[in-house]
Design a protein around this nucleic acid. Sequence first.
DNA 1: TGCCCCCTGGAT
DNA 2: ATCCAGGGGGCA
Length: 338
Amino acid sequence: MPELPEVEVVRGGLAPHVDGRTIERVEVLEQRSLRRQQGGPEAFARTVEGTRVARLERRGKFLWWRLQDAAGQETGQALMTHLGMSGQLRVRTGASVPSPAQASATDGTGAVLLPPPDPAAGEPRGEGPASDPHVHRRVVLHLEGSTLVDFVDQRIFGGLWTSPLVATEDGLPASDGSPDDLLPEDVAGIGRDLLDPSLDRDAAIAVLRTRRAPVKALLLDQSLISGIGNIYADEGLWSARTRYDTPGNALTRGRAVRVLEGTEAVMRRALDVGGTSFDSLYVNVDGRSGYFARSLAAYGREGEPCPRCGGTIRRAVLQQRSCFYCPACQRPLRVSSR
DNA sequence: TGCCCCCTGGAT
DNA sequence: ATCCAGGGGGCA
């Protein structure tokens, strides 16, 4: 589900509910969701329980919670979250548990505020167990003030774990708005993302243009630039009239710039839409509702007309992932022999 | 740099 | 039954 804009929407929606709150208890319902935790669930609980949330930060698709102790000193550990393909973070507050009818109405949008499980009533709509988030709840974080954060993840590709903070290599803030240069060790190998003011675009473009791999593979490589997933890669490439399989070293500098700028623009638009469609009580974890229905030019539109030139959008496969592109206005490019 | 795998479903 | 799904890690 989530690429950078969706994760950022989650971060923004979650922050007011968790900032400054103590994580009193962690409840692990599915051990596989802690696969990446060193030392297992016990270490996870030990590192997280009793700490206070100092701040939420994000780089690319990684979202982490910086933790502090009761005295307000940071512990040097981050609570990592990655949503994988199907992960969601949902807030429940004791004061505002909606009726089952309200919960059903919000179900399709991925909005939050879940009622407690109600086995007697069942699902009032035709929503089967698979669309009932309770079925896929994997971890519950119990915060002070009757605030619960559910980690819901159908496919268990995402997860929660802890990672010690280290300094960035370049000494710059870890991400947009970071107060210092600390970031989780597990994020050290992840490139800065397109919303990060410290991203060195010239360097990224230079690297893109040295590689022979298809440009889409390079966009999806999180170590170079992070946050771009399958959808935004296709949309960014479409906006730059560039085919997914163009070798990186076939890109002119101008074209490489347009690919990155186009991808960034699509992400910012998605973020704007996501940002307006939820209020502070809802952490929207499903961009589909507001944004995807309308704005995608190519992704998922095989057989439909290209909104720019009227050509027919086609689907291809690269690295076991779908690529949607317009064969008419995204022309193949070859490395010029020179 | 490509393939395989990790998982659980929904759609066809 | 088969294919598909917005994630990434590990492997030759």
